[in-house]
């Protein structure tokens, strides 16, 4: 009898080790990212500059490279978390901020704020509008799920419809906008980390970090939702409330992740799947691990995007897909077990 307990604790220990390993990997990748860039501030210099308070190197590190790294980590964490939560509460392996159209509507909100707030670039307006539109489409999907007893397929179809709606609305802006606005929008659609400063980061981190403890507290409830609404209710989960608030928080996280960086699509879908393949579907471990996987993915993609074609920078959104898709295919082919 002690035997099963010990075995189980062994498995749990391995899951925790995986999370620690991911944190170390993320740290390592961050250090590599810190020493990379168009200017010739190398490994040693950049590290030293981190702790100096003057000089050119200091400026490059603190004003350019570090914000970029921090934002990449935030975006990766945020998209992966949102994807994991959407997959759990909709019990749908295809759910993610982008497949549900929520990323696109948040993006539309941000673009709208950028254009109509022309001249007065206001990060509160951008973030707020992104969140508003993210919530709008989340509740649309939730409503469809509730009233039509919808299958995973219907939800994704609804998401695709929303995606088309908002991407064509954004295109309309492009069509009618001035050159400058068009440039802004196009840039946004590629997904980019080059425009972020500490102001944007602090705004985004509030939106991404604040829900994390709540989501972690709910990880049991997310696990129970996987066993079906009926089981979950019978085990004391307030299913409707969790689903509603879960969607609100996941939308907030999504909006935070993309309102300053644009379309970085693939992370939210694959990070939970990659993580689930390694440590299984227990959200107590899945949530933090998947957030770290997302962060590593985005940061690595950014390093590659800057290194591959230097000094040209390939937009992060494009690289994420180039890195993520083959890796995901590889995992799909290699694993025979199904997780959904």
């Amino acid at each position: 009898m002690e035997d099963i307990c010990q075995q189980y604790q062994g498995v749990t220990g391995r899951k925790i080790s995986f999370i620690i390993l991911l944190a170390l990997v993320l740290f390592g990748v961050s250090i590599i990212a810190l020493s990379q860039g168009p200017s010739s501030v190398g490994f040693r210099e950049s590290f030293a500059a981190l702790f100096q308070d003057s000089g050119l190197a200091h400026g490059i590190i603190w004003k350019l490279r570090l914000p970029r790294i921090v934002m990449a980590i935030m975006v990766g964490c945020g998209l992966a978390l949102a994807g994991t939560v959407f997959q759990a509460i909709l019990r749908n392996p295809l759910a993610s901020p982008y497949t549900l159209g929520i990323g696109w509507s948040a993006g539309f909100g941000a673009v709208m704020a950028i254009i109509f707030g022309a001249g007065l670039y206001n990060e509160y307006l951008i973030a707020g509008n992104a969140f508003f539109f993210a919530l709008l489409s989340s509740f649309l999907i939730l409503g469809i799920a509730k009233f039509k007893r919808s299958t995973p397929e219907t939800m994704i179809l609804a998401g695709i419809a929303i995606m088309f709606l908002f991407s064509s609305l954004s295109s309309l802006f492009q069509y009618m906008g001035t050159m400058e606005e068009v440039h802004e929008i196009v840039f946004w659609f590629f997904g980019s980390l080059s425009k972020v400063g500490w102001k944007e980061i602090s705004m985004a981190s509030v939106m991404i970090l604040f829900p994390i403890p709540i989501l972690l507290k709910w990880s049991w409830d997310f696990n129970l939702l996987a066993a079906g609404d009926e089981s979950a209710k019978a085990l004391g989960v307030n299913v409707d409330a969790i689903r509603m608030l879960g969607v609100v928080l996941a939308s907030l996280v999504t909006a935070g992740a993309i309102c300053f960086t644009g379309v970085i699509g693939f992370v939210g879908l694959v990070s939970p799947h990659i993580t689930r393949m390694v440590i299984g579907g227990d959200h107590r471990f899945l949530l933090p691990a998947s957030a770290l996987v997302g962060a590593v993915l985005v940061l690595t993609a950014d390093i590659l995007g800057r290194a591959l074609w230097a000094p040209q920078v390939i937009p992060i959104g494009i690289v994420t897909s180039f890195v993520g898709v083959p890796f995901f295919f590889y995992l799909l082919m290699k694993k025979t077990r199904e997780y959904w």
Binding site: A227, A234, Y339, W340
Partner: peptide
């Protein structure tokens, strides 16, 4: 406690 008749087709947990 309640044991339902059926679970969702996939229940990925140990």
């Amino acid at each position: 406690s309640y044991v339902p008749q059926a679970l969702p087709s996939k229940f990925p947990i140990s």
